[in-house]
Design a protein around this nucleic acid. Structure first.
Length: 574
DNA sequence: GCCGTTTTCGGCCCGACTGTTTTCAGTCG
């Protein structure tokens, strides 16, 4: 149920993979990959563009533009079909295993006829990889480890994908006559970092029209179960969606029940029992008489139990009930509190959009300030130089004042090297408004080395924010093994903020680390690390994660007014 | 296949690491 841009990007990426797997021209594969990325990050809906419009997208030339049009018109690209037919789909699946690229996938297929992850596991267990050229013992271990990592994600999908799907369904169902309310519940409403299945609730007197609608939506691939109260479907993307229709009078009780978490619900029910009440998805009832007390809204139910309304992002049984009873719930930071993004890229390095487009999009979001932080030279592939950075600064300064009161900050994302050193010397760093510093390589250093490395970065007076601190990629790469309590302590001591990277694949720091870091007295920055204008709205996933870490706007430096932020970024400069 | 041009070809992000080799291919950021 991807939007047209994502759908087209996926088709182009598939072809790029196929070209690589079949040993085709590596530059051609690369060209398709670049085009896929550009289409995915393009702000305009590709299905509304003509040939010239498509060719206006960077890295999309005549040939690809024509194929995109063909795809949008017919749902397929004739030129891709032959290559597609020559490689079983499962071979491409092998590429999702970290450390396994197209060359190895091809060797496995050609030599052993392996064409799925399961077949690969089987081949390894039967020691069929032994003796295969280029596959030693370590390779085997790495593949097994990679598969384990994949399996751990266990069919759960990224928050952003679930949110896209859910919002489309909610919009479609809300338009049906008789719909009094429609909302997502479950782990998506709680903004967990991955989502198993999507729970959608509707309040309506008659359930049938909604059961029928969800079963026949254009993006519904399969009806798994259909009953009077609940229908489960699988979308074209393979996502399971459970729809439940509630009587409007039981809306609050149903929303509470289906939002969870299970552990939170158990705690709430325990309180109900102590009040001589019982709570179900139908309402709050007196135990003795069975009479209903309240059920219409969540506020009423919590209120009757002596609790304030508890934000869904806190409902994990991490002390929110006790805090609520003691009137001690945090006033959580909200998306509206965020005054600016402090970690973003442009096409000067690996971003997709020019500086001017990114700044214009930021202004459109109503920010009070906005930082551009392209990569520094130590990430060699980005080819950054002092001259380029300074030229960008001039361009940025020239935009200052063009967007009302939005102030522009010129920053950089430094690379934290193996010993904790960063790209540029102090005198050059002093010229930036802020420096984010992040780990991009050498993930497998020892715990001591990694810890020392991050602590050293914190101690650099010019480093204001540690970017994506654990470097994990959800379902792809585990967090680095550092002593993060030592890092958090160093952040608190040196006045260095920890990033909450809002990219749905990262969400780094995650909620648990935020809770730990917070106890050290650390400040945070919720940033998107946007590489295109379409990434700027990812902020909400970062804010959701911050909320799950119990953060208030005082904990988040980019919820502060500019003056206070500047003092934090550059204490030396006053 | 895209792009830019000192345009219609020749380059394409560069370097490091890992594991497999014994000089290099594959993968990653």
């Amino acid at each position: 149920m991807a939007r047209p841009n994502e759908e087209v990007a996926a088709v182009l990426q598939e072809y790029a993979d196929l070209v690589a797997i079949t040993g085709g021209d590596a530059f051609k594969a690369r060209a398709y990959e670049k085009a896929a990325r550009a289409v995915g990050g393009h702000p305009a809906d590709v299905s509304t563009l003509d040939l010239d419009g498509l060719r206006g997208i960077p890295n999309v030339g005549r040939s690809i533009a024509e194929k995109v049009i063909e795809y949008l018109r017919t749902g397929r690209v004739a030129a891709f079909e032959e290559t597609r037919a020559s490689v079983p789909p499962g071979v491409r699946e092998l590429l999702t295993i970290p450390t396994l690229g197209p060359r190895k996938a091809l060797a496995l297929y050609e030599e052993l006829r392996v064409s799925s992850v399961d077949e690969l596991l089987d081949a390894i267990h039967r020691e069929r990889l032994r003796g295969l050229k280029g596959f030693g013992e370590k390779t085997e271990q790495n593949i097994l480890h990679g598969i384990e990592l994949l399996r751990k994600a266990g069919g759960r999908i990224l928050l952003s994908a679930a949110a896209d799907a859910a919002e489309r369904i909610v919009a479609d169902l809300a338009g049906i006559e008789g719909c009094e309310d429609c909302a997502v519940a479950g782990s998506l409403r709680r903004m967990r970092e991955t989502i198993g299945d999507v729970d959608v609730l509707v309040a309506a007197a008659r359930a049938e029209p909604f059961m029928e609608a969800v079963s026949t939506l254009p993006y519904t691939a399969e009806v798994i179960a259909r009953g009077p109260k609940k229908t489960s479907v699988r979308t074209l993307d393979g996502l399971q969606v459970d729809l439940r229709v509630l009587p409007p009078d039981a809306w609050g009780a149903g929303l509470l029940y289906f939002t969870g978490s299970k552990a939170h619900n158990i705690r709430v029910r325990e309180i109900a029992v102590r009040h001589g009440l019982k709570l179900s998805e139908y309402g709050l009832f007196r135990v003795k008489s069975g009479r209903k007390v309240v059920s219409r809204t969540e506020e009423e139910i919590y209120g009757r139990l002596g609790l304030p309304w508890i934000p869904p992002t806190l409902r994990e049984d991490r002390g929110e009930i006790a805090a609520g009873l003691a009137d001690g719930l945090p006033e959580l930071v909200t998306e509206d509190d965020i005054r600016g993004d402090l970690h973003t890229h442009t096409d000067l390095t690996d971003g997709l959009a020019p500086l001017e487009d990114m700044v214009a999009a930021a202004a459109g979001r109503g920010y009070a300030y906005y930082a551009v932080t392209d990569h520094a030279p130590d990430l060699a592939m980005q080819r950054m130089t002092r001259e380029k950075a300074l030229a960008q600064r001039d361009r940025l300064r020239a935009l200052e004042g063009k967007y009302g009161r939005m102030r522009l900050l010129h920053g950089t994302e430094l690379n934290i090297g193996p010993d904790g050193e960063v790209d540029w010397p102090d005198d050059f760093l002093a010229g930036f408004d802020l420096c984010v510093a992040s780990v991009h390589s050498h993930f497998k250093q020892s715990r001591e080395e990694l810890t020392r490395r991050l602590v050293r970065a914190c101690e650099n007076p010019y480093v204001a924010i540690i970017g994506h601190p654990t470097t994990r990629l959800i379902g792809k790469r585990p967090p680095i093994d550092a002593d993060f309590d030592a890092v958090f302590a160093a952040c608190a001591r040196t006045g260095t903020a920890l990033e909450i990277n809002a990219h749905p694949e990262r969400l780094d720091l995650g909620d648990e680390e935020i809770l730990r870091a917070r106890r050290h007295g650390v400040k945070f920055a919720v940033n998107t690390d946007a590489h295109s204008v379409t990434h700027l709205p990812y902020l909400r996933f970062g804010v959701g994660t911050a909320q799950r870490g119990w953060l208030t706007k005082d904990d988040v430096i980019n919820a502060w007014p500019l003056q206070r932020l500047r003092r934090f970024l550059r204490p030396a400069a006053g």
